[in-house]
């Protein structure tokens, strides 16, 4: 079984680990780092439930190999309230009813976070475009979009 050593930052902490070359980042996050907030919905890059932020960009962690993360900065849903306070997105998701079963929520939050980091004041169309790769079967997206809009710089307080 081939392994490689990777050094990376996960939710603000630097770590070095030996990882199997055939292991996905999703599996590594969930089963090795035991950060189970990140979900597997399809394992084929189609549903977005496994979205994490890698070097500032939202990625499907099932489509990235753990061996690729050497030198990378990874943020998972657990990082959002890492400081002890909830992120504005988390508060707005609750306030707007953007959460139902909650399975897509971590991935949706990370996509939204990456969007707002790069574009603090997105239009409704830009929000829809950004979350188009994150499937949600419960909400019909309306309240998710409202929550993201409300979290943006131009959103109401």
């Amino acid at each position: 079984m081939n392994t490689v050593s990777v050094t990376f930052t996960i939710n603000g902490e630097k770590e070095t680990r030996q990882v199997r070359t055939d292991m996905t980042l999703l599996k590594f996050i969930r089963e090795t780092l035991l950060l189970t907030g990140t979900k597997e919905g399809c394992g084929e890059g189609e549903c977005g439930a496994c979205t994490v932020i890698m070097n500032g960009k939202a990625v499907h962690s099932c489509m990235v190999l753990a061996a690729e993360i050497d030198g990378a900065d990874i943020q998972t849903v657990e990082s959002l309230a890492g400081s002890g306070e909830l992120d504005k997105l988390q508060l707005k998701f609750m306030e707007h009813g953007a959460v139902q079963c909650g399975f897509c929520t971590p991935g949706m939050l990370m996509t939204a976070k990456a969007l707002l980091n790069s574009n603090p004041n997105p239009t409704k169309a830009q929000i829809k475009e950004a979350i188009a790769g994150n499937l949600c079967r419960c909400t019909g997206y309306k309240q998710i979009i409202a929550a993201i809009q409300d979290s943006s710089r131009g959103g109401r307080k």
């Binding site: 950060l35 907030g37 990140t38 309230a81 909830l86 609750m94 959460v99 929520t105």
Partner: peptide, 9 residues
């Protein structure tokens, strides 16, 4: 159940 779901808990 919102808090448990937005935090990944």
């Amino acid at each position: 159940d919102g808090l448990a779901k937005v935090t990944g808990c």
